[in-house]
Design a protein around this nucleic acid. Structure first.
Lengths: 203, 203
DNA sequence: CCTAACATGTAAACTGTTACATGATTCC
DNA sequence: GGAATCATGTAACAGTTTACATGTTAGG
């Protein structure tokens, strides 16, 4: 259309852009769809917020990696996207690209445990139980809503990878539950005869 | 000194500020010390960058939660901090404060696995192995450098919590290694007779 | 002499969240 | 008629990283 169609060889896309690209390739069509899909699955290892999606879709389109068109539902405006061959190639290249894969956790609960020295024993116990409950709740969510969807991808589309990613997430939270059990036993005077049961030294 | 010493009842401190406060309380003295300590331990569940530390130390001091003074080593300038009673109280209040404890993971490796459908089977296998190797390396780091330090805190200062936090981190990475083993077996035609071994359908 | 470690600081850029605005449609 | 959901967008803010600047000291 314009005369400045030259792709300006942009900087590498941020990871959330590839999440969007991947979700579109898996059949999601609108920005809204993508957000729903991420909240249902990828959120457990890479959350993205709604406000990131629309600007990134625009950018993906500018770079020719997706093609969007208006497809309203009734009077309700709606824009749907398709991954272009260039987009698929960009996604594949990113997936294959080796290099550092930082495993980033940001968990204030563990920070609080780390410094729990400052708390009363009762508070610490409660905190460990909260951590346990949190992972159990996450597991329940995964079992109820995500597992069936992942199974569908495995069975219908012969794509086992969402299920495997979900499996990793569940494994992680099961490990936390196991850890919490051990920690709890240790805190509730679990050292039968071994340790001379620490007083509330608090200092 | 000035006439506007009134504390302006600031917004709640961001989590990294409490990490710094906690580290100072554990005996770290300078910003540099804090950074070293975080990189050695807390980084596995809550990393903070050097550029965050000095402005936050300044802010903590403004709010009366720490007290700093210059304590050069030779000609090399150096500012050391101590947690004030108000600071200890603020930390304790934050530790006890209930409420949402989001467990945030941002892991591009799992994102790549999730979308691995686009890759050749050989690439996927390699990727799972890389994830396994990553966790094994992290475990090795933890065993070599952090575990002894955590044990020291447990034995010398009767503070078992850093060790327990480290333990949680190790548990997590051990779970990933276990998951990777299973995933690898599944990918290398592991379905002996069970599954009719999926071809490289690639699409 | 040179490198690594000690030590502090900040500007600019980037990333991400919160909160709001806007409006249509579906379901009760 | 009202709430929930569908659907898109953005401005303002908060948080984070990268990169650099600056200088000292210890060790090979």
């Amino acid at each position: 259309v314009a005369d400045d169609e030259v792709i300006p060889a942009r900087a590498e896309l941020p990871p959330p852009a590839y999440v969007i690209l991947g979700m579109l390739r898996m059949g999601m069509r609108s920005g809204y769809d993508v957000k729903q899909a991420v909240d249902l699955s990828a959120r457990f290892f890479f959350a993205i917020s709604q406000a990131q999606i629309y600007p990134l879709l625009k950018r993906l389109e500018e770079e020719g990696l997706v093609e969007g068109r208006s497809e309203p539902r009734g009077q309700r405006r709606r824009r749907v996207y398709e991954v272009t061959p260039a987009g698929e190639e960009a996604l594949r290249a990113w997936l294959r690209q080796p290099g550092a894969l930082p495993f980033e956790i940001r968990d204030v609960a563990t920070v609080k445990l780390f410094f729990a020295d400052l708390l009363e024993p009762g508070d610490v116990l409660e905190h460990v139980r909260a951590m346990r409950a949190r992972s159990e709740q996450t597991l329940e969510e995964m079992r109820v809503t995500i597992r069936p969807a992942a199974a569908l991808y495995a069975d219908e589309f012969d794509n086992p990878f969402p299920q495997q990613a979900l499996d990793l997430g569940m494994t992680l939270h099961e490990a936390i539950v196991g850890w919490a059990d051990r920690a709890e036993r240790q805190l509730t005077g679990g050292g039968e005869g071994q340790e001379p049961e620490r007083d509330a030294d608090t200092q």
